[in-house]
């Protein structure tokens, strides 16, 4: 019987890969965003104590307005250039996809009444949100992944409609994993508050320029983190419409709602590995180890 062995809030600012200077990324940096990068290192350390087979990630940067899509090709290797920050992220990736699990997830979501589609085009370029979150969680890329698109129902309808769909997708995800033989890590690839600065320092990693865009967003970030740390996940979902609107949050992607649902609304403490801002946005790296997986 399969199992979710770990879940994480794993934001995807490309700046974090840029600052870490991995060989896959062409641009190089002196430093930058250490509190978040060290947070990801703590997450990776934690994950090194847990045995798992596959990483499943939901990314806001694979945006699908018709249904939820799942990567369905065994291997992708290409160049990912960030459309917003191409000066920072030009990353050569080579990844494998757990296609059987992707198909099971897709089928379960479809059975739950969601519109779905498998992505079978071998020329498809994997989105940078998926790549950044997976790289920072597992820099060796020695595990296959499943990438799930973000169905943009928050824009098309409302955060409430988005949440209904993501709650259903989360339940379907849990059911499909349980029915499989996989030990799975789930990643919600998103920031918390998400209002960017619209200019960039000449030296992008100049940390004297880095701070939250405004105090209001910091307050929201701290409120969400505190609720997640104390197991108040149902309250987080209840509060999500206000949070999404007022903090201009990337939770409009549905990733966090999906994760909370797949983890069955954890009431246990989320581990906080790090918090930091990236070009004004608020980012927390947090993890949940389900009791049955401990």
């Amino acid at each position: 019987m399969g199992q979710i062995v770990f879940g994480a809030l794993a934001p995807h600012p490309p700046h974090l890969v840029y600052a870490a200077n991995p060989p896959q990324n062409e641009p190089t940096a002196e430093c930058g965003w250490e509190t978040l990068r060290w947070g990801y290192e703590r997450l990776a350390d934690r994950l090194s104590t847990i045995e798992y087979d596959t990483i499943v990630v939901l990314s806001p940067h694979w945006q699908t307005y018709v249904g939820t899509h799942f990567l369905g090709v065994e291997r992708f290797h290409s160049l990912s250039v960030d459309p917003i920050f191409p000066n920072l992220f030009r990353y050569r990736y080579d990844l494998t996809v757990d296609v059987p699990l992707a198909e099971q997830l897709c089928a379960a979501a479809s059975e739950a009444g969601l519109v779905t589609k498998m992505m079978r085009n071998p020329d498809f370029r994997v989105d940078y949100g998926t790549i950044v979150s997976c790289h920072l969680t597992n820099p060796t890329w020695d595990k296959p992944i499943v990438s799930i698109s973000s169905q943009r129902s928050a824009a098309f309808y409302s955060v409430e409609v988005m949440q209904e769909q993501m709650l259903a997708l989360g339940r379907a995800t849990a059911r499909a994993i349980e029915a499989s033989d996989r030990r799975v890590v789930l990643l919600a690839s998103e920031s918390l508050s998400h209002r960017h600065f619209v200019s960039e320092a000449d030296i992008p990693e100049d940390m004297s320029r880095e701070h939250i865009t405004n105090h209001h967003q910091y307050l929201w970030d701290m409120k969400l983190i505190e609720m997640l740390r104390t197991g108040r996940t149902r309250e987080v979902v209840d509060l999500m419409p206000e949070f999404t609107e007022q903090a201009v949050s990337e939770s409009d992607s549905g990733a966090l709602t999906w994760l909370i649902s797949a983890l069955s609304f954890p009431r246990y403490t989320a581990e906080l590995y790090g918090y930091g801002t990236v070009i004004g946005t608020g980012n927390a790296v947090m993890g949940w180890v389900p009791r049955e997986a401990r």
Partner: peptide
């Protein structure tokens, strides 16, 4: 979309095989 102001394509000969993120089944 851009966030850092506006971006302008300046590669004299950009070349790629593009796939739409939504209508990927229509082809490359």
């Amino acid at each position: 979309p851009s966030i850092i102001g506006h971006q302008i394509q300046a590669d004299p000969q950009p070349e790629w095989v593009h796939v739409d993120e939504l209508f990927h089944d229509l082809g490359s």
